[in-house]
């Protein structure tokens, strides 16, 4: 089965002061439908850059990014905009730029489509899906960090995306909120079949992912493959499909 998102040989560097820093070196990554993949790394290692490149919000210096098999670099601007409105949910916790109610904020990506009533119906469903119905009338400034994370995810999933890219969803959350957010992301992959790629700076946040990777010094590393142990007879096969995720340097 073809992956929904694939990055192949992706490289990116920035000028930081007088030095050029290579934040991504020959990164190869695939995420399939129904998979939650977590990339762990310290702050400033290039995790957000990786997500932005996956969404074509930034262009890589080298390599190819494909979504549903299509080379993202070859999309026209209008095609990319449509992709970001309909098929890719880009989730960051910056919140709305203006002082909107959360219901208005979550409905935003669907407003242009079939009118206000339709968009608000979908927004209500998305807020309900993340367990934040009671925050519909509230404003960003009055929400806790945990609530902001969940509302941001609602803003991402309201477009019923195939791919959800979530930047740092567990920052500043306590244990209970963190488990709630990661469990929600896992269920979006397991139950709705979304491909979900998240970046996290804290290791406990990777525990609900199907697959994990670590980013440092531009290199994406994955754990060595463990031999599959047979599951006890009374347990079902855990959901999630096989993923191919490696850095080229590692597989070389």
């Amino acid at each position: 089965m073809k992956p929904l998102l694939s990055l192949e040989g992706v490289g990116k560097s920035y000028l930081r002061g007088a030095h050029r820093v290579r934040v991504l070196k020959d990164v190869t990554l695939e995420v399939g439908a129904g998979q939650l993949v977590a990339v762990w790394g310290k702050r400033g290692v290039g995790k957000t850059t990786l997500l932005k490149i996956a969404a074509r919000l930034e262009r890589p210096d080298q390599g190819t990014v494909r979504f549903e098999g299509v080379d993202m670099a070859k999309l026209r601007e209008a095609e990319h905009t449509r992709l970001m409105l309909e098929r890719i949910g880009w989730v960051r916790r910056a919140g709305p730029k203006s002082d909107l109610r959360m219901m208005d904020y979550v409905a935003l990506p669907r407003l242009a489509e079939r009118g206000r009533r339709h968009a608000y119906g979908l927004a209500r469903e998305a807020l309900e899906r993340v367990g934040m119905s009671e925050c519909a009338g509230q404003h960003w400034g009055s929400l806790s960090d945990g609530e902001r994370s969940l509302v941001s995810i609602a803003h991402g999933i309201v477009r019923a995306p195939k791919l959800l890219l979530v930047d740092d969803p567990t920052a500043n959350l306590d244990v209970i909120e963190r488990e709630q957010v990661t469990q929600l992301l896992r269920s979006l992959a397991d139950d709705e079949g979304m491909a979900v790629l998240i970046t996290v700076p804290d290791m406990p946040a990777v525990m609900r992912a199907h697959h994990i990777a670590s980013l440092s010094g531009g290199r994406l590393s994955t754990p060595p493959q463990l031999p599959e142990e047979p599951l006890p007879e009374d347990e079902e096969e855990p959901p999630g499909k096989v993923i191919q995720l490696r850095s080229r340097e590692q597989s070389a």
């Binding site: 290791m203 990777v206 525990m207 992912a209 994990i212 670590s214 440092s216 590393s221 994955t222 754990p223 060595p224 463990l226 590692q250």
Partner: peptide, 15 residues
């Protein structure tokens, strides 16, 4: 580094 990642992976699998 890979050993550490492997240990995290093992813990994840046990959970």
């Amino acid at each position: 580094e890979l050993v550490c990642l492997g240990r995290v992976q093992e813990l994840k699998k046990s959970f």
